[in-house]
Amino acid sequence: MQGSAGKDYLTIIVFGAALIWLLPMVENTYTLTILIIYGMLGLSLGLIWGFGGILCFGQGAFFGLGAYTYAIAAINFGESTVPMLLAVIIPAIFAAILGAMMFYGRLTEVYLGVITLVVTLILFKFINSTAGPQYVIGDARLGGYNGIPGFQTLNVPGDPGAYLWGDSYYYVCAVALLLVYLLVTWLLRSSFGRIALGIRENETRISLMGYDVAARKTVLFAIGAAIAGLAGALFASWGEIVTPTLFSMAQSAEIIIWCIVGGLGTRFGPILGAAGLAYMKFLLGQQSLVDNTLITGLILVLFVLFLPKGIVPALARFYRAVLGNGSPGKRKNTHRIRRATNG
């Protein structure tokens, strides 16, 4: 068990490092950075939805909250280390409170979706209406629909003058995603993660075993929000401005589409779905022949119809079908891969 875990982590690090090294050869790092940030956001929903069964329609709220927290704190502190930490902690606390209300209130899945959606809309409306000078946190004006520009972007911890930007910012974000990925892998292998999977499968059974389902879902929800918050902070530092559109419905809906297209119940699927669709949107944005939301919608429909489990599970199945007919040893090996992607 220990050995196979170590091998898993090593594989992730090797593949991750190779991707981080190779990708700048095909695309500029500025574009890659945003794809990585979206990948992290996709992973945050992929974790709570794919492995915990919590369908959150407002994952964008935690992303936006992370971005705003970072922007406001960066203006007040004039450096980026504490704001980064706050951007992780505040969405997590917000999610823990919201989650506790929903899960201890024993809401069914539909109402969970409605509430998370409405919370996102409330935040959107609220931030949009904060244009007046009375909406100030410390030195930072919330700025309403204009957003907050001109805050301190990411710097080397302890040296506010040493900005991390361009290529180095790409590497920071890529390593951050790799670390989050490793963390998620570790979490899913832990008892907590295995029980979360049990909750996804059958909540009643897990509670009849004596586990406090509401508490566990709340913690998982908060972890997902923390990851989304980190992605939001990285996004703020990349874009150098935060605006209320971060809280828009379109943003939250897109995250769900990423997860479906990439493959729910896998760790890599949501990242691939996010980066892939965001890149496609970027390419389509360079022409004016077709509207790109139309294409995104079309892709979602096609996937739901023809590849409902998403890309990564389909690839895994294909891989098994091709390699699975080999020797018994190989078969055992692919079985383990399947277990790894499922769990």
Partner: peptide, 30 residues
């Protein structure tokens, strides 16, 4: 129910309540 179960009470409901996409040993392990 989870508080009752935590006391050391084993409960089997009328309809089978198991985790379908997990293996037998994983079910029991949980």
């Amino acid at each position: 129910p989870h508080q009752i179960a935590s006391l050391g009470v084993g409960i089997k409901t009328q309809t089978p309540n198991v985790m379908d996409s997990l293996t037998v040993s994983e079910n029991i392990w949980l």
